[in-house]
Structures are given as structure tokens and as C-alpha cells.
Design a protein around this nucleic acid. Sequence first.
DNA 1: AGATGCTCTGAAAACGTTTCCATGGCTCAT
DNA 2: ATGAGCCATGGAAACGTTTTCAGAGCATCT
Lengths: 336, 336
Amino acid sequence: MAYTIKDVAKRAGVGIATVSRVLNESPNVLPETRARVLAVIDELGYRPNHAARQLVTAKTNAIAIILPFLTRPFFIEVLRGIESVVANSEYQLIIFNVDSPEQRTRYFNTLPFLGRTDGLLIVSLPLAPPEIKRLQAANLPAVMIDTQAGNLPSVVVDNVGGAFKAVEHLISKGHQRIGFVSGQLEPDLGFTVNRDRQRGYEAALTAHHLPVQAKYLRAGFDRRDWGHQAALELLDLAEPPSAIFAANDDLAFGIIDALRERGLKAGDDLAVVGYDDLEMAQLIGLTTIHQPMEQMGRKGAEVLLAALNEGTRRPTLHTLPVNLIERASSVKPSKA
Amino acid sequence: MAYTIKDVAKRAGVGIATVSRVLNESPNVLPETRARVLAVIDELGYRPNHAARQLVTAKTNAIAIILPFLTRPFFIEVLRGIESVVANSEYQLIIFNVDSPEQRTRYFNTLPFLGRTDGLLIVSLPLAPPEIKRLQAANLPAVMIDTQAGNLPSVVVDNVGGAFKAVEHLISKGHQRIGFVSGQLEPDLGFTVNRDRQRGYEAALTAHHLPVQAKYLRAGFDRRDWGHQAALELLDLAEPPSAIFAANDDLAFGIIDALRERGLKAGDDLAVVGYDDLEMAQLIGLTTIHQPMEQMGRKGAEVLLAALNEGTRRPTLHTLPVNLIERASSVKPSKA
DNA sequence: AGATGCTCTGAAAACGTTTCCATGGCTCAT
DNA sequence: ATGAGCCATGGAAACGTTTTCAGAGCATCT
């Protein structure tokens, strides 16, 4: 068996309380005594038992992160940001991946992290009111990333502002008729991205004294084939748009596909701007809005650590800025 | 404060030992008593204190995974495989990312997971003999994935054989001048992938009586832009290669980028074969070596769980096969 | 009828820490 | 010189479980 604090105490000729004091860097211990104890600790290779410490301090030194779709780049980047912050703290990171609604329900019902972690980071998953309640009842500090719930602290990106930038960029290129293709505006799970981005789209048009025209709005599904279909619909209008802003890159890919099918080229014949800046966007040359994914993770982790260390528990909302990455799909000015 | 086992016992009118027996599904408890206890547990919402349980059982129900470069698709896929297995077990997953040699040294010196986890999964990181020794001294079951050390159980893929297959494929298409672009051959962290794949490359050439020419070898960094640069260098040779084998897909993407820049097309003008079979490879039509990344993770996790549950501790070596996925980037036979 | 053995149960010990409290020695001001 | 106060220290309680041990109740066998 491993050595215990008693072994150290006996060998150093002190009481266990003194060893504990040395371990916890209490000021009230004679330098000479401290040195003796440290020497024995080193000699024995003693390591404090974590469970025992946890039992009495009621602190686990671990935080859990719950995220969906561990495989998608967005979440990876967020995870990376979180990890980079947590690695430099005294905390360890326990990871829970949620890929199915059943898993999700199971996690939030059983709260398997309860008592195993000091804090919680929830990425992207919207929470239902009873779940929020249960979480708060458990009195577990939690920070939401890329999602909001109740009055829990959140780190989000400025979807409205991002969409605004995207559309303003198109306007600056001389476009007057700008289509908007998005997924569901009121999805079951309560995501508000599409609605927010539409608001940014409308705000940009209005700010530049352009009309918001219903015929240019295409809200459907968050799938590439919807982008495809919506693009065809827009092209078939009597007065088709000269540019399309897609609420996410995947939709934009569908749009570009549709253009190609008609013998048109994104950038040359019709400007396209996406949102997300997926890896593929760079390869395809899609102008898009880049989200500071890693930074979101970092910020979320920092907020949580602050809450844990300083007891800062006031609900806060951190909105991170996004920026436009200009690529070939929107480089040419409008001919109109 | 949360309820304890005592509260449950008192309320159910039994001793704490009986509650514990119910909790641990001991057979020797009257169905009637069990029901009463369970009712109280449910009513109070009692949850056993984890630390206390850990203290007495000396079991943490957690396993740690140590991996480098959390951001790279390869490791993500492995992580995903691991997670999928661990999520269905009673274990939780603690994650340690190692990006720098200093971090690595620190981790393996302090073994911060000691006493916090029941087992260890080490991905890709090669271990030095003293580190192996320290690990074994700690008596912590460990499984290596994509790396080998001492006589610890390992799950690896056949990198030499995979590279051999890739190059042989190009040779079968009639290519004689085949470039090789890779990352560092002797990287800080001690990976051997690039070296192994180069060995496979050379072996294939030699087996088919083709010369290994230094001018066609480009070892640099494990980054896409290096693939880009290396491709340009190869194209600028007096006698450029007609095919390039990239040590990983990311490098291959860089190569394809470079070709496009020159107005060339992978597959038509120059054959390209990658390694990894990332999701993007399919989209882009890159011929590549498919590594069962997720499967590696799964297998590694399974081996570890088996070791933990059944005490299977014999050193084993699982070598997973790789196979070539032929796509557009290498479909045309060499014109030469 | 008594011994034996089985099933269910509770008291208490044990796990390895932190922390509270008491104590003894020392310094310092009076 | 003596009491007040501070510092370093050790003993012991406490944290919330699991597990050991002993015992009570009861059926079965001789």
C-alpha cells in the first residue's frame, strides 16, 4: 500500500496535523520543521490520498464539460479552448459527450457529475426549465457556452452582429437585392441562431435604407439540400437577388452546388456569404463569418474558474465579437 | 447540506449497513426492507457521497486519457471512439491534453492522475523507459494507443504497411517518380509516424525496383501550409514527380491547394495520395489510407476496461489493419 | 429437545485526510 | 517577576461511506 500521512508524521517525528499544515502551506509551521517534513515526503514519495481530502474538504478539483457531437469542428475548438485554461488551473476536466436526445435526457436526469465535480460547463445544449431548476437546486456552479438558460452565466457570440457584418459587406460590394437562406426560425430545441441571424440581416438592410423583402427570405431546414433548393427558388424569381447570405456554411455549400448546377459560379455570377467558417469554407473559397470558437471555450472556462475561486456567482452574459473572412465567393462588386 | 446515509437509515428505520447493502445490491436483504429503503432514498433524493465511497473502496471509477494536439482530427476520432465505449461503462473520462514537451514531462513526472483514476489511456505519446517504470511502479493499469512502450498493452496501426499500400497503388498506376511529403521525422514529442510511413514509402519503391531519391523527399511540419510549400518545391524541380504521397491528409490538402494555385488538378495532372481518411478527404475526392481511428479508440478503451474489470493484465499487442480508399485524386494512370 | 446452520440485521471499525481545540513554551510589556 | 498574548504543535473529532463481526430469529436435522 501507499504511504499515508501517518507514516510521514511518524518518520518525521511530528504529528499528522503538522504534516497536513506543511501540505497545505499553512504559515504557522517552523521552517525547520517544514523542511524535515518535506524531506520525508520526498524520501517516501508520499502523495496525499485524494478521496480522503475530498471527503473532508467537499471539493473535487474537477469540472465537467457537457457537449454534443464531439466530432464536429466547432465543439472541438471550444473544447480546446476550455482545456487550455483548465490545464493551467488546479482542476481536471471530465468530459461528457451527448450525441442523442436520450443520452441528453439521461444526463440531465441523473446528473452523474453531481458530487464528482465542482463546476459544470455546458456547450451549445439548450436546457429546459425543469433541468435548469434541478441544476440550480444542486447548487453546482455552471456556465453555459454558446447557449443561454435561466440566469446562468453565459458566453455567446454576437449572431445578430455577425449577420449584420456579412450583409453590410455585401452591400459595400454594391449589392441591393440580397437573399437570406436559413434553417428553422423556431426549432424544437429552442436554438435561436437562425432567428438572430435574420435579425442581423434585416438590421443591416434597414441601416442602409434597403427594403426587407419577403420574397428574398427562405427559412427552411438546417441542411445542405435546403440551401440547394432555396437557391434554385431564389434564382427563379422574376428579379433574382445578386447576392445570398446563408445562415450557416452548410447551407452556403448547398447554394454553391445549386449555382454550379445552373452553370453559374459563386463570386462571379452571384455573391455568397456563409456563417461559421468551417474548414471546408477555406478550401472552397467561401466568404463567411468566423466565430471565435476557441476563445469561447477559454472565456467560458475562465468565467467558471472565477466563480469557483472567488465565489463570483452573479449571472453574466459575455458576448464575443465575430469577424468576416473575405474570400472569392464575394470578391467581385455587383454588376447591377 | 445533502442527505447522508444516516438520514436514510434513520428515516427508513434501519441501520446504515442495511442502506449500504441496498445501495450495493447485496442479495442478503429482505425484499420488504429493500423496498422501504429505496422509497426513502427516492423521497429524499439521496445520492451517495462519492468521495466517501472512494475512500473506503479505493476505486475512483474514472479513467484518464492523455493525448497530444486535441485539435487534430486524428486524435478527435480516437477520443470519440474512447468516449463511446467509456460512456457505456460505469467510468468517467478525465482528459489531459499534452501539446508541448514541457507539459509532457510535467505530466509524467508528477502523474497528476495518480489516485484520481483507476486506469490510463495514452494516445500516440511515446514513453521513455524511466517513465514506463514510474508508471508501472504506480501499479496503474495503462493501455497505449497508437504507440508502444515497455510491455504495456498496445493498440496500433500498421503505418509502415499502410504507406507501402499507398505507394504500391501509385506504382500500379504507372507512376515512377513519386514524391513524399511528411512532417518532422524526429519531432519533439517523439512520434514515429512520419518515420514509419517514410519507411513504408521506401520499402514499396525498393520492392518495385524504383530508386529512392532524396530530391523527392520533403520532411517539414505537420501542418497544411507545409504541404502547400512542399508541393510547390516539388513542382519546381527540373523533373517533378508525377505523384505525391503525403504522410497525412492534412498535408495532402495543402498539396491540392498548391496544385490549384498552379492551375493544376489533383488526379488529372498529378496523383495525390494521403493518409488518415479524414471526413474532408471524401468530400474532396482524395485517395488515402483509411485508419480505423475511432476503432482504435474503442479497442483501446475496451482493453483497458477488460483489464480493470476482469483483471486481465497480460501485455497484448493489437495491430489494426489499414486499407486504401481509392478516389479521384489518383484515378488516372500516369502519362509518363 | 437440542444442536446446527442459514438469513437478515445493526454496531462499530476502518479508510486518510482536514480542522478544531487545547497546551506548552516563549516574548514582551508592565 | 508575572500575566497577557502569540506561535508551533499534537490529539482527537469529523467527513460519509463500506465492510467486518456478532447476534437474533428461525427452520431443519439428529
